[in-house]
């Protein structure tokens, strides 16, 4: 991924910045230009809370080249407490303990790198909430 493409979404990848439609309150992550529910054009930006629940999951055993040294790893779809769903890796938990409905928190992690000499892409991954 070229540096510009990664950089322009830092508010989302680094701070989970989402946008709430002013008219109908639907929340979008990443933010959009037009609301898919009411076609409104005005939004309020805010950083989502870093908590949610697992909605579905799998374990990737045959990854793409970019992630070849990391398999097997778990990914899932997380329903964020603030509304939108996002795709995320699920880490620091044995695969057989990942369940639909599991509460998670999002932690800052490395997502990938552009090889040995390229930039490092940071973002968030889901970890189980432990009390």
């Amino acid at each position: 991924m070229p540096p510009a493409r990664s950089w322009r979404t830092y508010p989302q990848t680094y701070r989970l910045e989402a946008a709430r439609c002013v008219k109908c309150e639907k929340v979008f992550f990443p933010p959009r230009l037009v609301c898919s529910k009411c076609h409104g054009r005005q939004f309020e930006r805010f950083n989502m809370k870093r908590t949610g629940k697992v909605v579905t999951h799998t374990v990737i055993r045959t990854p793409s080249d970019e992630f070849s040294g990391e398999a097997p790893f778990a990914v899932g779809i997380v329903q964020m407490d603030d509304g939108p769903r996002m795709t995320s890796q699920i880490v620091d938990v044995p695969f057989d303990e990942i369940k639909i409905g599991m509460p998670v928190k999002l932690e800052f992690r490395r997502l990938s790198t552009e090889g040995e000499a390229g930039t490092i892409h940071y973002g968030h991954k889901a970890v189980p909430v432990r009390v």
């Binding site: 040294g69 990391e70 890796q89 880490v91 620091d92 932690e107 800052f108 992690r109 490395r110 997502l111 490092i120 940071y122 991954k125």
Partner: peptide, 16 residues
């Protein structure tokens, strides 16, 4: 540290 943890990621969580 895991493969996806480094000085920056640990610093962000400590900072938070």
């Amino acid at each position: 540290p895991a493969l996806d943890e480094d000085t920056i990621t640990l610093s962000v969580e400590a900072a938070r």
